[in-house]
Amino acid sequence: MLAKRIIPCLDIKDNRVVKGVRFVGLKDAGDPVEVAKLYEQEEADELVFLDITASFQQRKTLVELVEKIAKNIYMPFTVGGGIKDINDIRDLLNAGADKVSINTAAVKYPDLVNESARRFGSQCIVVAIDAKSIMDRGLRVERWQVYINGGRTSTDLDAVEWAKEVAWRGAGEILLTSMDQDGTKDGYDLDLTRAITEAVNIPVVASGGAGRPEHFYEVFVNTGADAALAASIFHYQQYTIREIKQYLKEKGIAVRI
């Protein structure tokens, strides 16, 4: 049976892991390669690296970093953040990334999804969608709006419609982040995740809000999510990946353990 995936996400800035990685016992908790190796020992199912480096010059070194990571781990990994065109995608895949995650560029140039899927195969093209709820007058969620530029810029795209469109254009997977839940540790946005997984026929990775093992269980039981991504819950070593998986296994969720 296909296992539900547990995926740690690492934010990378200027080739260093940032945003609260507090691993004890690591020589250098900011070194992406060291952190990646630790997650491999823990049997993470996959890794996501999100580059949040601003300047162009520094971004060039991302390709070298990807090469270094690829040399050191034996599991699939996705690289995202700031990808602008097909050349960026090619460079990262050639450097050893298994998948690339595109967000803003996909909204601005939707044909990039078609072109990159045709050229490199759908299986390596992930479209990341950052979605935020819009309330109706009764303060119920009416729909979800797509944001770009790291959540700073709103678009007029509806998240469910956009998900359908990128699937149709050839995306192999959707990385869905709830901006309402992100950072809250209150759990994944189940309504949003359900709405998206019901709308498309490609795998969906739920993201934003994981704080306790129950949250992983909830998102797998109540939505069609194929994977759950989390950052701080793992980085601060509140829970190890094994503990989360053990919990899920005891609750009857198929995980690789």
């Binding site: 049976m1 296909l2 995936r5 199912d45 299986q123 997977e173 795998p203 194929d226 994977a227 690789r256």
Partner: peptide, 30 residues
């Protein structure tokens, strides 16, 4: 869902394949 992405199990029907020597039945692979 297509593609089939992720970790799934291999169920052995042929036991003596040297490529899978010492690999437990139902192991997860990517």
């Amino acid at each position: 869902k297509i593609p089939h992405i992720g970790w799934n199990q291999i169920k052995m029907v042929l036991k003596d394949c040297p490529l899978l020597k010492d690999i437990p039945d139902n192991s997860y692979v990517y």
